[in-house]
Simulated scan of single mutants.
Amino acid sequence: MSHLSRTLPIKRAAHVYLVQDAHLLLVEERMDDGSIFYGLPGGKAHAGETLGDAAVRQVLYETGLTVTDLAFVSLLEGELLTGTRNECYANFGRFTAQFSGELSPSDPEVVGLKWVPMAQVEALVRYGPPPEVEERNPLIWVPTRDFVRGTPRAYYPI
Rank of each mutant, 00 (worst) to 15 (best):
S2L: 14
S2N: 03
L4D: 06
L4K: 11
S5I: 03
I10Y: 03
A14I: 03
H15P: 03
H15C: 09
V16A: 14
Y17E: 07
D21F: 01
D21H: 10
L25T: 01
L25D: 02
L25S: 07
V27C: 07
R30N: 01
M31D: 13
G34Y: 07
F37Q: 13
G39A: 05
G42A: 01
G42L: 04
G48W: 08
E49G: 06
T50K: 07
T50N: 12
G52H: 09
A55R: 05
A55W: 04
Q58F: 01
L60F: 10
E62I: 02
E62L: 04
E62D: 04
E62G: 04
T63D: 05
G64R: 08
L65S: 03
V67I: 12
V73R: 03
V73M: 01
S74G: 06
G78E: 09
L80T: 11
L80C: 07
L80Y: 09
T82H: 07
R85D: 13
C88N: 14
A90S: 12
N91S: 07
G93K: 01
F95R: 00
T96G: 02
T96M: 03
T96F: 00
A97C: 04
Q98S: 13
Q98V: 02
F99I: 00
F99L: 00
S100A: 13
G101E: 04
P105M: 04
P105N: 11
P108F: 12
P108M: 06
P108R: 13
V110Y: 12
V110C: 12
V111Q: 01
G112E: 08
K114I: 01
W115S: 00
P117I: 05
A119Y: 07
A119C: 11
A123D: 15
A123T: 15
V125M: 13
P130E: 02
E134S: 11
E134R: 12
E135Y: 06
E135L: 11
R136V: 01
N137I: 08
N137P: 02
P138W: 05
I140K: 10
P143H: 13
P143V: 04
F147Y: 15
F147K: 11
V148W: 15
G150R: 09
T151L: 08
T151V: 13
T151P: 09
A154K: 14
A154P: 01
Y155W: 15
